[in-house]
Design a protein around this nucleic acid. Structure first.
Lengths: 135, 135
DNA sequence: AATCATTGCGCAATGC
DNA sequence: CGCATTGCGCAATGAT
């Protein structure tokens, strides 16, 4: 229930009242020309007020929103898939039940027939042998 | 893992350079007991530095983490369920295939038999042999 | 009124 | 470089 309207926190809070400065990220410490390995300037000069910075932030925020939306979408899809599969499953089970029943009927018919044959024509105890009872 | 560790974002940023000031929320305006309209506005006394505040934040952060973990867990479960259902589906389809084949064979037998009867010449005790169910 | 649970959002680090 | 992901904290809101 949100119209994606901005709200709360925008990284803007500057009330001077906190006695305990929660120590902020120290930036731009610039290696004291000592143990700094042969690395280029990895100095993070993210001048919070820089236009560059602000621009990047905005872009990232956008990307983040997009990504999250996508993620949620996917999750929902997955959920839907579950239902879909469940339905399919039920369908298949019903079919199996039907087929099983049909098979059963046919087999019974076979047996009956065989029996009749035996009764009327005891010529030979043929047929009726491949009954593989499955409990 | 993390317990009360601070990192990034401390809600401290205040560079006024952007053309669009996103208007900040002023809090604690507490009417000086004067022209305050007949509304008992809940003064949000969230003194950023308050111990109360800090405590609440920490608790919430914990709750958030918990909630998110749970959420992820659930998502993963759902994904697993999909695979499970897919497997089940395949199993069922295989079974259907088998049953269908069996049925087909039986029906053919029936037809053949009926045909033979119609011919009134059951001489050819043909067939009836491919009942090779489960090896 | 208080507390925990959810959720949207921005920041920053990290993965392509 | 730039977008995409992801962990994290903040604050509003929902649910008890």
């Amino acid at each position: 229930m949100n119209t994606s309207s901005s709200s709360s926190d925008d990284g803007l809070s500057n009330s001077r009242s906190s006695p305990l400065t929660p120590q902020l990220v120290l930036l731009n410490s610039e290696g004291g020309g000592k143990a700094t390995p042969p690395s280029k300037k990895k100095a993070q000069r993210m001048d919070r007020g820089s236009e560059e910075y602000r621009l990047r932030r905005e872009r990232n925020n956008l990307a983040v929103k997009k990504s999250r939306l996508k993620s949620k979408q996917k999750a929902q899809d997955t959920l839907q898939r579950v239902n879909q599969l469940k339905e399919e499953n039920e369908r298949l089970e019903a079919k199996i039940k039907l087929l099983t029943k049909e098979l059963s009927v046919l087999k019974d018919l076979f047996l009956e027939h065989a029996h009749n044959l035996a009764e009327s024509v005891p010529s030979e105890t043929s047929a009726a042998g491949q009954e593989q009872a499955t409990p």
